[in-house]
């Protein structure tokens, strides 16, 4: 019963990944036979200023939005963890933006962030705050994208919620008796217990953002204004699907593989450290 999954992984993930690894050494346009060019693609790509810029932009997006998303998911999950009225509806409402199909969601935000007519800026002006020009402004385009990413945190929210629910209530009761206040409890008990999960989530989110941001960027900014939101996926998309230069696209992918490799390594270390996958209690993802 494990067979279809294994086969699927091999054909749809392992094999394509392997091919793209090798394609980096060929010149290939999908039409003529591939031609061995050695390291030429790497030289071309790694001297391309746009490529370097795209990595910078990608990293900037990930570094800012991932902690915000993971912490946001944690805080929100903590808020609706314990019983109360309409609890399941609160949870549903928080999850709802995640259900919206990505292009529809991007379209909604494109309207919300419209610099002149968008409801968000109307609101900001109404309460006397400066209304930035968001996606139309080279400086504010990235914050705009990060803002868009902050609402769809349903998956992280659920995982945090499950992890919080998994904590035995006795711990909290014991801590209360010892006189710990809420903050102390959070800081010294909840947080350490949840740390591996938050870290796992952060890594997964980093990879996810790399990818998800592409849809947003393609529909909302197309890399602009003036390359302010030009990211690695966009570079790879242009190389692969616009210029049909699969070789250079593969060479660019190597960076991604290196990042992924690092992430997987960290993951493995974390997993070993906390014994994830062996014990039941902390296993959530």
């Amino acid at each position: 019963m494990l067979l279809p999954y294994t086969l699927g992984l091999i054909v749809l993930v392992a094999f394509p990944a392997f091919i793209s690894f090798g394609l980096a050494f060929f010149q290939y346009d999908g039409l003529t036979t591939p031609r061995w060019v050695g390291l030429l693609n790497f030289v071309l790509v790694y001297t391309d200023e746009l490529f370097l810029l795209s990595i910078q932009n990608s990293l900037a997006l990930v570094i800012v939005s991932v902690p915000l998303r993971v912490l946001g998911a944690f805080v929100v999950a903590r808020l609706v963890q314990r019983n109360g009225r309409f609890l399941s509806w609160f949870r549903a409402a928080i999850f709802l933006p995640t259900i919206i199909p990505a292009p529809a969601y991007v379209m909604a935000w494109l309207w919300l962030l419209n610099p002149l007519f968008g409801p968000l800026n109307l609101l900001l002006r109404a309460i006397g705050l400066p209304a930035p020009n968001w996606l139309a402004d080279p400086v504010w385009a990235k914050p705009g994208l990060i803002l868009i990413a902050l609402w769809q945190i349903g998956e992280g929210f659920l995982i945090n919620l499950a992890a919080l629910q998994d904590m035995p209530p006795e711990i909290e009761n014991a801590a209360r008796i010892d006189g710990a206040n809420s903050f102390q409890f959070l800081r010294y008990i909840t947080f350490p217990i949840l740390l591996p999960i938050l870290l796992l989530l952060a890594f997964r989110d980093a990879i996810l953002i790399f990818q998800e941001s592409f849809t947003t960027i393609l529909l909302a900014t197309n890399g602009g204004p003036y390359y302010a939101t030009y990211t690695l996926p966009l570079f790879i998309y242009e190389q692969g699907f616009d210029l049909l230069s699969f070789g250079t696209a593969s060479a660019a992918l190597w960076v991604l593989y290196m990042i992924t490799g690092l992430v997987v390594l960290c993951l493995y270390l974390i997993a070993r450290q906390w014994g994830i996958g062996t014990t039941d209690e902390t296993f959530v993802i």
């Binding site: 419209n114 610099p115 002149l116 007519f117 020009n133 139309a136």
Partner: peptide, 8 residues
């Protein structure tokens, strides 16, 4: 300007 063009 750029902003107004982006808005509409």
């Amino acid at each position: 300007d750029r902003i107004e063009e982006a808005a509409q």
